[in-house]
Design a protein around this nucleic acid. Structure first.
Length: 904
RNA sequence: GGGCGAUUAGCUCAGUUGGUUAGAGCGUCUGUUUUACACACAGGAUGUCGCAGGUUCGAGUCCUGCAUCGCCCACCA
């Protein structure tokens, strides 16, 4: 047996963490097992980018998941947490391309598709998966035997199956549309991947001459003069009295010089700018719509990388769009057609990954009409899926109500290639003719006659099947092997609200579309917990470029994983953003240390019988030896456990940490262990006191385990609460039933007594401090009991009170003294033989207190004299006020006596 | 333009259905080797709960309006 007293005075996390994580994984205790005799519990991880590294956001998110799954195991459920990584199409392709450019001086296009993918895979295998190792350091109890990557063969079949099925069901089509084009990554993006940023730009006012009325000009405002070359009309509002008359006429486009019509369209806002709009159907989504209505030519003047092409004219061809803008302005000025340039702030859509403004661009892309939109909305509104906090439902519903088709094709190679083949030699193949276009998971049987579509799928069009793709769907054997029947739907999803559209909503639609059964069987999860965003102390989002993102592994190395987990959870109220600083982790580390030392203290008291089960510990308690402090601490333990249960039900993790912290630090260590000290030398009480200590420590370890898995596992074993070869996660934290069976529940009187003792100790210490003997341990004190029962309480607890107060003696007296004094819940306490005390200060202090009491007396009297209060407030409140008033007056009377005895 | 959130001690935040004298951690001040823990212990200081109304016997808590900050959504060039 290992004695804790032989171990270091402070908790040393790193060895403990390594030891137990290894033991857990080796034992297979994180494995999800299908066990019909138990309730199933499941979570799928939001798959981190395979090339990513652990951030504080991951720490928060994964700690919550770990807490939930560990708690489920403790509660006897058969639990699984399915881990995995996301190939993260555009993000990874971008990284690999920049690696190629930097290290190999080549690029994706030069290498060709096959070679590029090969290199990307090597790169992924080398750099990817780091994050998985980092999650292990955090203590994540994932079932690693089920690790899934979105490009795995099995998972990929699921992704393609979903595509093919939707195609067959008529939800997927190909078309030439305006899309968000990223000129850096050379791919289309979905609307969700475009981030709007306010930009300081210029609004240029210029004039176009009317063809039919030379010398007459229309003034036009634009922020994008570089698209003039693509103008195919000028539009005015038909109801605009100023310009209506020009509709049907023409203006000269300045360059390349050409006649373009003046058209009338309601879209034009009479009040904005000059009221005249240049229409560039190829380079603006709204203009494209106008173009459709008026049958205008679409003149695309840019290359895919947003340089100008030959249609822009010799002056511009080859220029970047921003250089072209400057040049266009210069040219307008030279031609005398630039009227004004104004500073202007507008929102510009940026490519999330590319970091440059997206270019609206007409191109052939694959689109998806979302399936099961109404059902997805109903699933959340009906409560089949619950959102925590609930307010995100509104955001979700609003998005579904305004949903638009999803551009799912990407012009990149890193991803799932679209499973569509075109017959060789057929021009403009008909999507609906299987002779010309083949759509299937496995491809055509005669591949030599077909060419596969070069595009790949949006990453989110692969991760949207995550909750069931990770369970083997659509392969029946795999689904059986992985227990999909048992584990699906998953219990909880923990994610950030920033991907509510990208991922959460789409997973719900996918589940409803692809799986059989009723809503309750099809939905991917029953609860969604949205975390807050971790920010720095200035409230800024953590980012690499700001350098304000601490490395969690560094924090773990310095404070321990448990300290980090506890610190983060302690300050993470439901769904609120979190301002993070290391001080929070210090709190967690300190708490670990407190826990460690309390156990060490218990261990130093030595063996006191069997502690290997709740039953045996309770069996060591001799009820006749329990005093009020024993009963109070047990009552507080029960209360803490009830609160913890309740807060789990509401996903109030910070409340759980606060309950546990307050119980353990204040009630148990701050009071109970201290009063234990004097009772341990009482042979008749000793065993019972140690049994109560064991009970509290054991239950605290169990309750803390989901938050602090490593230290609790270590202490669980070194304290001998658990057996070798088994783990704390397999022990239920329930105990209230057993306590109740002991008849230990009638504790309100004990709690009141303990409160009195605490009050006596605190006031007595304060009195000593005021008299300058706060640190002396040999004070002689007197107690004038407030009533007979107080004398009894004092006598029953005299030893512990002397010790806690730091008194050599506390004598009961029956008359006032003229020594410095304090009012306590047990009566008036005097500090004897306190020569040199500044009685003037004492008097001032008492008078101040008297004034305070007098204020309270007045306000309470006023309340009680208010007939409305007495008649309308509940009796308990009125009685409480009366009692307080009486107590207040009693105190005032006591203080009056003291002041009198001091001669004030 | 619409929606959502926040506003409580110097700092970061709790405060569940309205109930008496508003809490925690950090920081700060004064002390301390006291049967575990200085990552600790003891004692102290610090708040017109954003502003203005309203409901109520009673409001940090409920209602209305306003202000400031932040986020999301929205095709005004």
């Amino acid at each position: 047996m290992l004695f804790m007293s032989d171990i270091s005075k402070s908790y040393n996390p790193s060895e403990v963490e390594e030891k137990w994580y290894g033991a857990w994984v080796e034992s297979g205790c994180f494995k999800g097992r299908v066990d019909p005799s138990k309730e199933a519990y499941s979570i799928v991880i939001p798959p981190p980018n395979v090339t990513g590294v652990l951030t504080m956001g991951h720490v928060l998110n994964n700690t919550i998941q770990d807490i939930l799954v560990r708690r489920a195991r403790q509660n006897g459920k058969s639990a699984v947490w399915i881990p995995g990584t996301d190939h993260a199409g555009v993000a990874t392709q971008t990284k690999v391309e920049s690696y190629l450019r930097k290290e190999k001086h080549t690029g994706a296009r030069e290498l060709g598709r096959e070679k590029f993918i090969e290199i990307a895979k090597q790169w992924r295998d080398k750099h990817g998966g780091i994050i998985i190792e980092q999650l292990k350091k955090l203590g994540a109890s994932c079932d690693w035997s089920r690790l899934v990557h979105t490009l795995d063969a099995d998972y990929s079949r699921g992704v393609l199956t979903a595509f093919v099925e939707l195609f067959r069901r008529g939800y997927i089509y190909r078309g030439k549309r305006m899309v968000n084009w990223c000129p850096v990554n050379l791919t289309a993006l979905s609307d969700e991947e475009v981030v709007m940023r306010p930009q300081k730009s210029k609004l240029y006012r210029m004039k176009y001459e009317l063809v039919e009325e030379p010398g007459t000009y229309l003034e036009i405002s634009t922020t994008r003069p570089e698209t003039i070359m693509g103008d195919s009309a000028v539009a005015v509002n038909p109801n605009d009295g100023r310009y209506g008359k020009y509709i049907g006429k023409h203006v000269w486009r300045p360059f390349p010089k050409e006649k373009i019509p003046v058209i009338g369209d309601d879209y034009v806002d009479v009040k904005f700018g000059t009221g005249v709009l240049k229409v560039t159907p190829a380079h603006d989504a709204a203009d494209f719509e106008i173009g459709l209505r008026h049958n205008l030519p679409v003149i695309d003047v840019m290359n895919p990388d947003a340089t100008m092409n030959s249609l822009a004219g010799d002056d511009f061809c080859g220029l970047d769009r921003f250089a072209a803008r400057e040049k266009a302005v210069e040219k307008l000025a030279e031609m005398g057609q630039l009227v004004a340039v104004e500073d202007y702030e507008n929102n510009v859509g940026f490519s999330e990954r590319g970091g440059v403004p997206i270019e609206p661009r007409l191109s052939d892309q694959w689109f998806m009409r979302y399936p099961k939109v109404a059902e997805a909305k109903a699933a959340v509104e009906s409560g089949a899926i619950k959102f925590w906090p609930k307010r995100w439902e509104k955001t979700y519903v609003h998005w579904l109500d305004n949903i638009r088709d999803w551009c799912i094709s990407r012009q990149i190679w890193w991803g799932h290639r679209i499973p569509v083949w075109y017959r060789k030699g057929v021009e403009n193949p008909d999507i609906n003719n299987p002779e010309e276009v083949h759509v299937s998971v496995d491809g055509p049987s005669d591949p030599e006659n077909w060419v596969q579509d070069p595009d790949s799928l949006d990453t989110w069009a692969s991760s949207w099947i995550w909750p069931f793709g990770t369970m083997g769907w659509p392969n029946p054997e795999k689904m059986k092997e992985l227990g999909m029947d048992y584990f699906y739907p998953t219990s909880d999803l923990v994610t950030g609200p920033d991907i509510i559209f990208f991922w959460v909503a789409r997973m719900i639609m996918a589940g409803l579309e692809f799986l059989p059964g009723d809503t309750a069987e099809k939905i991917p999860f029953k609860n969604v917990y949205f975390t807050g965003i971790i920010r720095d102390m200035q409230g800024r989002k953590m980012s690499k470029s700001l350098g304000n993102s601490p490395d969690p592994l560094d924090i773990i190395a310095r404070y321990g994983a448990d300290g980090l987990r506890f610190g983060v959870m302690n300050c993470a109220p439901q769904g609120q953003d979190i301002l993070f600083s290391e001080e929070r982790v210090e709190l967690g580390r300190n708490f670990c240390n407190k826990l460690w030392n309390a156990c060490r203290f218990r261990q130093m008291a030595g063996d006191a019988g069997d502690r290997s089960s709740l039953k045996s510990i309770i069996g060591r308690i001799n009820p006749s030896k329990l005093d009020s402090d024993d009963l109070s601490i047990i009552a507080n333990l029960v209360k803490c456990s009830d609160d913890v249960d309740k807060d789990y039900g509401n996903y109030q993790f910070n409340a759980i940490t606060q309950s546990l912290y307050a119980f353990f630090w204040n009630d148990f260590c701050g009071w109970y262990l201290e009063v234990s000290k004097s009772r341990l030398s009482d042979e008749s009480a000793r065993d019972t006191v140690l049994a109560v200590q064991d009970l509290c420590l054991r239950q605290t370890l169990l309750m803390l385990h989901p938050f602090m898995p490593f230290i609790t596992e270590e202490l669980w074993h070194s304290m001998e609460y658990g057996r070798d070869g088994d783990f704390i996660q397999n022990e239920s934290p329930a105990f209230v039933g057993e306590i109740g069976a002991m008849g230990l529940s009638a504790t309100s009187e004990a709690a009141a007594t303990t409160e009195k003792l605490k009050d006596f100790v605190t006031k007595s210490r304060a009195l000593k401090a005021q008299c300058g003997v706060g640190t002396k341990r040999d004070s002689k004190m007197l107690l004038l009991p407030a009533e007979a029962s107080c004398a009894d309480i004092f006598k029953a607890n005299a030893e512990k009170l002397k010790k806690l107060v730091g008194a050599d003696s506390i004598r009961l007296v029956d008359a006032e003294s003229d020594s410095p004094a304090a009012l306590t819940a047990l009566g008036t306490v005097y500090l004897e033989a306190s020569a040199g005390v500044d009685m003037g200060a004492e008097i001032a202090r008492l008078q101040k207190e008297l004034a305070k009491l007098s204020g309270f007396e007045k306000s309470t009297e006023a309340r009680l004299n208010n007939a409305a209060f007495v008649s309308k407030a509940p009796a308990s409140v009125v009685d409480g006020a009366k009692r307080q008033l009486a107590e207040c007056r009693l105190k005032m009377e006591e203080i009056g006596k003291l002041l009198k005895s001091y001669g004030a």
